Simulated scan of single mutants.
Amino acid sequence: MPQLSLHSPLGPLTLSEEDGKIISLDWGWGRDQTETPLLCQARDWLDQWFDNPSALGAFPFPLEPYGTPYQKKVWAVLQTIPTGSTTTYGELAQKAGGSPQSVGQAVGHNPIPILIPCHRVLARNGLGGYSGDGGVDDKVWLLELEGVALPQRA
């Protein structure tokens, strides 16, 4: 499986491709580095996104995350949340079906964070969690990069 890593403001990230589709984005530097056309385009897109996320819109390349049919349904709805916007687990559950808890589990298992923007989902009474290496701090950083005004944290 081809992988390509990049430096980002959140630390090293690694994209993985299978059959011409992005299947994961992981924190850390990958062992193998293969410059396929898709991985190079995705890396370049991410570099530009970190510079100005509102200028690019949604990720334009094919994604194929591994997951259950329900998880894939939740992840598809996540991809409709515009840059600079947020939703709650409850609102996401209304659109995807299921409960806020089941949506939260699907969001937490998202294998392509940032590109499938799980950081845009908030708890009803706060930020909620985030599965990136930096946890909620990464979530806050990504939301602020997109221009989302957040309440001060204690």
Score class of each variant (00 low, 15 high):
135 G>D: 12
93 A>Q: 11
132 G>N: 09
127 L>V: 13
149 A>K: 15
96 A>E: 06
116 I>V: 15
82 P>N: 15
6 L>K: 00
87 T>Q: 01
120 R>A: 01
128 G>N: 10
54 S>C: 09
22 I>W: 03
50 F>M: 02
7 H>K: 11
78 L>D: 07
36 T>Y: 03
66 Y>L: 13
154 A>W: 13
103 V>W: 04
92 L>Q: 10
93 A>F: 10
51 D>E: 13
27 W>P: 06
147 G>K: 15
43 R>H: 00
87 T>P: 02
6 L>F: 01
107 V>L: 04
114 I>A: 09
1 M>S: 11
62 P>G: 07
74 V>I: 11
70 Y>I: 05
145 L>W: 11
5 S>A: 05
76 A>C: 02
47 D>M: 00
28 G>K: 07
63 L>T: 11
90 G>I: 01
49 W>S: 02
74 V>C: 06
41 Q>Y: 02
8 S>A: 01
78 L>W: 11
103 V>D: 08
48 Q>W: 06
61 F>I: 09
67 G>M: 11
107 V>H: 01
91 E>K: 08
72 K>L: 09
8 S>D: 02
149 A>I: 13
46 L>E: 04
16 S>R: 14
29 W>S: 01
95 K>A: 15
48 Q>Y: 08
64 E>C: 13
85 S>A: 14
35 E>K: 06
89 Y>H: 08
32 D>E: 03
80 T>C: 11
50 F>K: 05
60 P>T: 12
30 G>S: 01
109 H>L: 14
87 T>G: 03
78 L>V: 14
145 L>M: 12
26 D>V: 13
19 D>A: 15
140 V>T: 14
109 H>Y: 13
149 A>W: 03
1 M>H: 10
152 Q>L: 15
76 A>K: 10
154 A>C: 14
55 A>K: 14
91 E>Q: 12
64 E>T: 06
60 P>N: 13
68 T>V: 07
148 V>R: 07
30 G>L: 02
52 N>M: 04
30 G>T: 00
37 P>K: 05
65 P>Q: 09
46 L>V: 01
97 G>C: 14
130 Y>W: 05
47 D>V: 08
92 L>A: 11
4 L>E: 04
48 Q>G: 00
134 G>Y: 05
144 E>R: 15
33 Q>H: 03
14 T>L: 03
77 V>M: 14
25 L>R: 03
89 Y>G: 02
84 G>M: 11
143 L>K: 08
7 H>E: 11
69 P>T: 09
65 P>L: 08
53 P>L: 06
65 P>R: 09
89 Y>V: 02
110 N>M: 06
73 K>C: 06
132 G>W: 03
113 P>D: 04
83 T>H: 08
30 G>C: 00
125 N>G: 12
84 G>Y: 04
107 V>G: 06
52 N>G: 03
81 I>W: 01
55 A>D: 12
65 P>I: 08
111 P>K: 12
16 S>D: 08
74 V>K: 04
105 Q>H: 06
72 K>P: 04
122 L>T: 07
103 V>M: 05
13 L>E: 02
129 G>H: 14
74 V>F: 07
34 T>A: 03
74 V>N: 05
137 D>R: 12
138 D>F: 05
130 Y>E: 00
98 G>E: 05
40 C>W: 00
35 E>F: 02
47 D>T: 07
